[in-house]
């Protein structure tokens, strides 16, 4: 079904279609509000006022609670899986996810060691916060260890390759040091 309203430019809440000339005249006076005091907010203040505003707003608050409950359940179920995924970044669904998590974990670990942020928090935080911090630090350690393991494998491969090349040809540095043979 088509729509018969013409309101392309509905300025200041009016639903009248404005000719450009009217718009120019309106725009000329547009900034007069800058000299006026900021009016009171007409938005609801707090959850109760929001809920009592209209039926859909009340429904929306219920939706937010339902969403929160489901999210918390999902987070609880996923926590173990996510931790093990951090130890095995190659199992993550998307390479970007591994890159994001890995870069963030390594980077925050470096920052921490430079600025001692966690150290300060450890000395001044409550038990709940410390438990959260332990979980966070364990995750970071898993990532850093995974990166170190990957780098260790690369270095081993590099050494193996160098050893193989060395058996075939003499490295250029060694050749340069060798005394020249006299005729």
């Amino acid at each position: 079904m088509g729509d018969d309203s013409e309101g392309a430019g509905d300025v200041g809440g009016s639903l009248t279609h404005l000719e450009n000339a009217t718009l120019v005249a309106f725009a000329a006076d547009r900034d007069s509000f800058l000299t006026e005091e900021l009016p009171e907010s007409l938005l609801p203040q707090g959850e109760e006022e929001f809920m009592s505003r209209d039926l859909f707003s009340a429904d929306y608050v219920e939706f937010l609670y339902a969403k929160r409950d489901v999210n918390e359940t999902v987070r609880g179920v996923n926590r173990g899986l996510r931790e093990s995924l951090l130890e095995k970044p190659h199992l993550m669904e998307k390479p970007e996810e591994g890159a994001h998590r890995g870069a963030a974990a390594v980077w925050r670990s470096l920052r921490d060691q430079l600025h001692e942020e966690s150290l300060q928090k450890i000395d001044s935080s409550e038990r709940d916060e410390l438990l959260l911090m332990r979980s966070e630090l364990e995750l970071r350690r898993a990532v850093v260890e995974s990166v170190a393991k990957g780098l260790g494998a690369l270095l081993k491969r590099l050494d193996d390759r160098l050893a193989a090349i060395g058996a075939e040809d003499e490295p250029p540095a060694a050749a340069a040091k060798a005394p020249a043979k006299k005729g």
């Binding site: 430019g9 200041g12 809440g13 509000f33 938005l43």
Partner: peptide, 13 residues
């Protein structure tokens, strides 16, 4: 928008 000045906003579909 009701708490904005009339010249402070425009509405388009």
């Amino acid at each position: 928008c009701a708490s904005l000045a009339p010249g402070q906003y425009i509405r388009i579909r």
